[in-house]
Write a protein that binds this DNA or RNA. Structure first.
Length: 340
DNA sequence: CATATTTGACCGGG
DNA sequence: CCCGGTCAAATATG
């Protein structure tokens, strides 16, 4: 049983991985498909096991390992190429998406950040500034930097659509750069909680290439359809991750494993480094091997509530995006949940 | 009209 | 004090 749960969680993890890497994967149907298959496999297995659970106890761990192995190697697309090598190649040069993540460890304070926009809302008025904004400690917010070439698809040279909707909230000239850096955040700000942000900047030496840095994760799944893939039932057994040990094994994060699983027992609303080993992982800005491990979640205090809202929320969002909600503004719709 | 972008001001860390 | 990130008013867009 334990393993089944583990499997399910793994599936969730994979799903989240997919989500977070979505931007990069969108241009790679092959990767997308393999990722989907991955997820499918995991959940399918879990499901099968559950069904078969009655007859006999769960299979020995060895089998589990075997399964893992199988999963790892079996989804090779029909191209007879190993996925990883393929990707490696893909990303290395020809593919516009030369991906390299820059990850920083994250501590995440998650909850507090209301004081920002909230200032004027709560405090009547536009009179002078009160405590304008409370700079949040950016200490350790996860960041993933990705390089993406502007698709020559005639279209703009704005960074490729990554499936999310962003709203630009700023632009700055950066010291050593010729081009300004733009700041985006998830359009569905309504979700105060969707801290997903990204910043985009063209490279000096290669104006056709953008460097996109994502930080934060979407708590809002992009528009519709997204959730449909997985039956809600299969998703997130609500039971938050228990200390399910998954043998960190890590320390060698670089090793490529599509389905690396490092469960963070208490994942705050957001996630950590979720990424598949297929990409070139470059350690933090300078200290290259800052393993992504070490959650160190300082305060689990009130993390709980946020996450379970995830799916319901999705449904809601889904509903409102699909049905031409006559309601005026999104904010109204989401208002009920805005904590502040 | 609602929502998105622009843009200078502001904030706070280094 | 500088610089990068963010805010928010003004503006653009549909």
């Amino acid at each position: 049983m334990e393993e089944i749960l583990s499997l399910i969680l793994q599936g969730c993890k994979l799903t989240r991985d997919l989500e977070s890497n979505f931007p990069i994967l969108t241009n790679n149907p092959i990767l997308l498909s393999s990722s989907c298959e991955d997820i499918l496999s995991v959940f399918t297995r879990a499901s099968d096991r559950l069904k078969a659970l009655t007859p006999q106890p769960p299979p020995p761990p060895e089998l589990e390992a075997a399964v893992q192995e199988w999963l790892r190697s079996s989804y090779t697309p029909s191209m007879t190429m190993a996925v990883n090598p393929f990707q490696a190649q893909l990303f290395s040069d020809k593919n516009p998406f030369d991906v390299r993540f820059l990850t920083t460890r994250d501590a995440e304070g998650s909850s507090s950040m209301k004081s920002r926009g909230g200032a004027e809302a709560s405090d009547a008025g536009k009179s002078p500034v009160t405590q304008q904004r409370s700079r949040k400690r950016k200490e350790g917010v996860e960041r993933q930097t990705v390089k993406a070439a502007a698709p020559r698809t005639g279209n703009t040279e704005i960074p490729p659509d990554d499936g999310f909707t962003w709203r630009k909230y700023g632009q700055k000239e950066i010291l050593g750069s010729k081009f300004p850096r733009s700041y985006y955040r998830c359009t569905h700000k309504s979700f105060y909680g969707c801290n997903a942000k990204k910043q985009v900047q063209r490279l000096d030496d290669d104006p056709d290439t953008f460097e996109v840095t994502y930080c934060g994760h979407h708590t809002c799944l992009m528009s519709s359809t997204a959730p449909s893939v997985l039956p809600p039932s299969a998703v997130v057994p609500t039971t938050q991750q228990e200390p399910i040990e998954v043998e960190p094994t890590q320390s060698s994060v670089r090793e490529r494993r599509w389905q690396s699983l490092e469960f963070e027992p208490n994942t705050p609303t957001d996630l950590r480094l979720r990424m598949s080993g297929n990409f070139n992982v470059v350690g933090g800005s300078s200290s290259s091997d800052v393993a992504a491990n070490e959650g160190q979640g300082p305060s689990h205090s009130q993390v709980g509530d946020g996450k379970e809202a995830e799916w319901p929320v999705v449904d809601l969002a889904d509903a409102m995006f699909n049905s031409g909600s006559s309601s005026s503004s999104m904010d109204a719709i989401f208002s009920f949940m805005q904590d502040k």
